[in-house]
Design a binder for these strands. Structure first.
Length: 204
DNA sequence: CCCTGATTCGC
DNA sequence: GCGAATCAGG
């Protein structure tokens, strides 16, 4: 793969949005995150203003050879004053052709404290409804030693199964290692992906 | 362990 | 210019 204008543009866009190099690499395809980072540097668009990013220590200092300092004027118009969209989550999918069809169980909205009017209509806890007794058992058992991750701590290999009441402090995500490809751990995959047949009217 | 970006350097 | 290997940190 080569850096066509289109790809470079997508790279710029995503990098600007604060996407990580690995995410960008995955989106682009055909390149590794190293390639992305390398390109980013070559393009001169390194430091993103704020950042969620981690690590940004520029201090090689390992090789004793002193480089006569780079005479880099580096004119950075210093764009984006504060482009951060307050909204916590959201990969900012504007016109994404592929908006991640990850079949969520239901609620995935841990915004603030109470998004639910403290009334009754609590979002149906996916774990609740009638499901295979075995799966349920396994689920509750697993949930006891869940890693209890927050929204921000989720990655592609942490189970994204919501546990608890989103309107409460007692809300978190499973966080256990996901099953290859799936968004949930084994136990939760079991209750998340069920044949419509067995799911169809089961009690109720 | 997972992840992040930064740098180096042979190609 | 490119990016794997490596480094450094969370």
């Amino acid at each position: 793969m080569s850096w066509t204008e289109e790809r470079v543009e997508l790279l710029k866009k995503m990098w600007g949005e604060g996407q990580s190099a690995s995410q960008i690499a995955k989106e682009l395809g055909g390149v590794t995150r190293n390639a992305v980072i390398g390109k980013v540097h070559r393009l001169g668009l390194s430091n993103r203003s704020g950042g969620g990013g981690t690590t940004a220590k520029a201090a090689p200092a390992k090789d004793a050879d002193a480089k006569p300092a780079a005479p880099k004027p580096a004119k950075k118009p210093a764009p984006e004053p504060t482009p951060e969209p307050a909204t916590a989550a959201e990969p900012a999918a504007k016109s994404e052709p592929k908006p991640e069809p990850a079949p969520r169980p239901s609620n995935v909205t841990p915004l603030r404290k109470a998004i639910v009017p403290a009334g009754q209509p609590l979002p149906p806890q996916p774990s609740a409804n009638e499901i295979s007794p075995e799966a349920l058992a396994k689920q509750s058992e697993v949930e006891r030693h869940a890693k209890r991750l927050t929204l921000m701590e989720l990655t592609e290999r942490t189970c994204k199964w919501p546990i608890g009441d989103p309107a409460t402090e007692d809300f978190y995500f499973c966080g256990l290692p996901v099953q290859q490809g799936k968004p949930y751990c084994e136990a939760h995959v079991g209750v998340a992906f069920q044949p419509m047949s067995s799911r169809r009217d089961r009690k109720r």
